[in-house]
C-alpha cells in the first residue's frame, strides 16, 4: 500500500551541518499528501486556510463544509471537523450547522460549478439570509474534477471539453460574476476577490480569510471570499502559463480586490 503521509523531520541535516526548523506545516493540515495537480491553486488555498485557523487558535471551534468538485477530499487534508455536502448544497448544510451551533466558526469551500451552477439558489438565499458563515469560492473557470467541462464562470471564447469551439455567449450564456451579483444583498457583509498565483496574492488572500473568520463573531452576515485559481490540467497550460493567463485574462474579467468592505461603523 502506498504511504500517503508526508513525514516532517525535526531538523534538517545537510553536509554534516544541522539546521533548526524555522517553519513547518500547520498542525491544522493532516499531513495527507494532496491529490491536486502541480500548479493547482487548491493546495495553496487549503494551506492558507489551515494557517489562518492555526494562527487564530480556533481549530476546536471550526466546522467546515466541503463541496463536490476537485476539493471533494478537502476533509482528508484539513485537520478539523468537516462535513461533505451534496453537489451545490454546501451553503444549505452550513446553514444547518451554524443555526444549531451559533458559536462555532462555520465555512464552506466550494468550486464554481458547485456554487455558481447547481448551487446558485442555495448560495443566493444563504447570502440573503445573512448567515454568519464564510463562503470560500474557488473560481478557476472550469469543472476540474470531471476533467474540464465548461463552468458558468468559463470566460467567453474559452475552450473546454463541452465548448470545444470556445464558449459562445450567444448560446452558452455569459461568464457569471457571482461576487458582483451577491454583493448588493444586505446579507453580504464582506465580499472580496483574491487569487493564489503569486506571493502578494497569497498574502492578500490570507488577510481576507482571516477577516472572514473574525467577522463571524460580529454576527452581521456573510463573508464571501472568491479566489481566482489556476488550473493547469484543464486550461491545458504549464503552471507558469496559468500565472500569465490568470493575470492577463481571468483578472481582466474578474478584477481582483475588495468588492464590499464593512465600514468602521459596521465593525463595531
Amino acid at each position: 500500500m502506498e504511504n500517503n503521509e508526508i513525514q516532517t523531520p525535526d531538523c534538517l541535516v545537510e553536509n554534516g551541518e544541522t539546521y533548526d526548523m524555522v517553519y513547518e506545516r500547520p498542525h491544522t493540515l493532516t499531513g495527507t499528501r494532496m491529490h491536486y495537480c502541480p500548479g493547482c491553486g487548491h493546495s495553496t488555498a487549503h494551506k492558507i486556510l489551515a494557517e489562518v485557523i492555526e494562527e487564530l487558535g480556533i481549530q476546536g471551534d471550526v466546522v467546515g463544509i466541503a463541496p463536490v468538485g476537485c476539493s471533494v477530499f478537502a476533509y482528508d487534508y484539513l485537520n478539523f471537523d468537516m462535513q461533505e455536502a451534496a453537489h451545490g448544497r454546501a451553503t444549505a448544510v452550513a446553514t444547518g450547522v451554524k443555526r444549531v451551533l451559533p458559536d462555532k466558526y462555520v465555512f464552506t469551500y466550494q468550486g464554481d460549478g458547485d456554487l455558481a451552477a447547481i448551487g446558485t439558489a442555495e448560495t443566493i438565499h444563504c447570502v440573503n439570509r445573512g448567515e454568519n458563515i464564510m463562503i470560500i469560492f474557488i473560481n478557476n473557470g472550469v469543472y476540474g474534477m470531471t476533467s474540464g467541462q465548461m463552468a458558468p464562470t468559463s470566460l467567453a471564447g474559452m475552450k473546454t471539453t463541452t465548448s470545444p469551439y470556445g464558449r459562445d455567449t450567444k448560446t452558452m450564456g455569459h461568464p457569471i460574476k457571482v461576487s458582483e451579483l451577491i454583493a448588493p444583498l444586505p446579507g453580504a457583509f464582506y465580499v472580496t476577490r483574491q487569487a493564489v498565483h503569486n506571493a502578494p496574492a497569497v498574502r492578500k488572500t490570507k488577510k481576507a480569510i482571516t477577516n472572514g473568520f473574525k467577522y463571524q463573531k460580529l454576527n452581521k452576515g456573510i463573508s464571501f471570499i472568491e479566489i481566482i485559481s489556476n488550473c493547469p490540467s484543464n486550461w491545458k497550460m504549464t503552471p507558469l502559463q496559468t500565472v500569465e493567463f490568470l493575470d492577463n485574462e481571468m483578472a481582466k474579467y474578474y478584477p481582483l480586490g475588495d468588492i464590499k468592505v464593512p465600514s468602521a461603523e459596521d465593525l463595531k
Binding site: Q83, R89, A92, T95, G96, K98, V100, L101, E122
Partner: peptide, 21 residues
C-alpha cells in the same frame, strides 16, 4: 427556518443532524 426549497431544507437537516442536533 423556512428554506428556499425542499432541496435546501433537507440539506439543512443534514448539516444540523451532522452537528449533533
Amino acid at each position: 427556518l423556512q428554506a428556499e426549497s425542499e432541496v435546501a431544507s433537507i440539506n439543512m437537516v443534514y448539516g444540523a443532524a451532522g452537528a449533533g442536533a
